[in-house]
């Protein structure tokens, strides 16, 4: 982990890769009176898989949604690939970014949801090519070819013309992964991707995610899958009550947790 420093933009002489993919500094978020995030500092280097663990209500999903500005943060800073998310620093003033600029930032951040959120009125392939054609203006034939490649990669090339209602939960989630990858993101966010699945369908989705991790994708994964964290995680963050209680290499945190709350949580889920 690098030490936080007040970098605004990636300096021209800064070699690509030195800047972490995600860096957050003292992130706060409240819904009404409920303070969900109370100062989150996280750094995810390029190509790393960061697994976020924690009891429900600990703020981990909210934190993930702040990274692509689905939630507006109340205080602190988030940088993705060296660029401030949702804002622009001009001198000593912070300017809100226009919707269009925020959308452009989101294009580079793929997200996979707990409830898949596939578009039910489109078949699997249409789901995958929708954003590349509509948002990036990609040529339909190219988008289709690439879409089929991605569906093949998640093992669903034969389901390309099926509608989401005709697919199992695990298949839907893999289509959702292909849909996010179709935008060629630099970063992938996973919000409890296997929590809504029947146990026997979890494996296929985790395999697709492991494959993605091995390809060098930077990933932030909120999950309860301890096995996944141990196997592919480069760092593990344990959140509780809106703060990071403990973080470090997954094996170390999982086998020798330092904090009593981490120990308590792990004793319940393991």
């Amino acid at each position: 982990m690098t030490t936080p420093q007040p970098a605004r933009h990636r300096a021209p002489d800064d070699p690509a890769g030195a800047e972490p993919m995600v860096r957050t500094e003292n992130v706060h978020k409240a819904f009404g009176h409920v303070k969900v995030l109370r100062g989150i500092d996280v750094t995810v280097p390029r190509g790393n898989v960061c697994v976020v663990l924690g009891p429900s209500g600990s703020g981990k999903s909210t934190f993930l949604r702040c990274i692509n500005h689905l939630e507006k943060i109340d205080a602190g800073r988030i940088w993705v690939d060296g660029r401030l998310v949702g804002y622009q620093q001009k001198g000593d003033k912070l300017h809100e970014l226009h919707d269009k600029a925020v959308a452009a930032q989101r294009r580079e951040i793929g997200m996979v949801f707990q409830r898949f959120n596939l578009f039910p009125h489109m078949c699997a392939l249409e789901n995958v090519i929708e954003a590349p054609t509509m948002v990036k203006g990609q040529n339909k034939a190219d988008a289709r070819r690439r879409g089929m490649e991605l569906l093949d990669r998640v093992g669903l090339a034969d389901k390309a013309l099926n509608y989401p209602s005709q697919l199992s939960g695990g298949q839907q989630q893999r289509v959702a992964i292909a849909r996010a990858l179709a935008m060629d993101p630099k970063l992938m966010l996973f919000d409890e991707p296997t929590s809504a699945l029947d146990p026997e369908l979890v494996g296929d989705v985790l395999d697709a995610m492991k494959d993605l991790a091995r390809s060098g994708m930077t990933m932030v994964v909120v999950t309860h899958e301890i096995g996944f964290a141990r196997e592919v995680g480069d760092q593990l963050i344990f959140m509780d009550g809106g703060v990071v209680v403990e973080s470090g290499p997954p094996r170390q945190v999982l086998t020798t947790p330092q904090h009593p709350r981490t120990r308590d949580f792990l004793s319940k889920v393991l």
Partner: peptide, 25 residues
């Protein structure tokens, strides 16, 4: 609301999300 969210997360504008995702449903 997850539909609009998914469209937003893919970088679609409000108008695109409305026309392509929300209104058809």
């Amino acid at each position: 609301p997850g539909q609009d969210e998914a469209a937003t997360a893919l970088g679609m504008s409000r108008g695109q999300a409305l026309r392509r995702v929300v209104l058809p449903q």
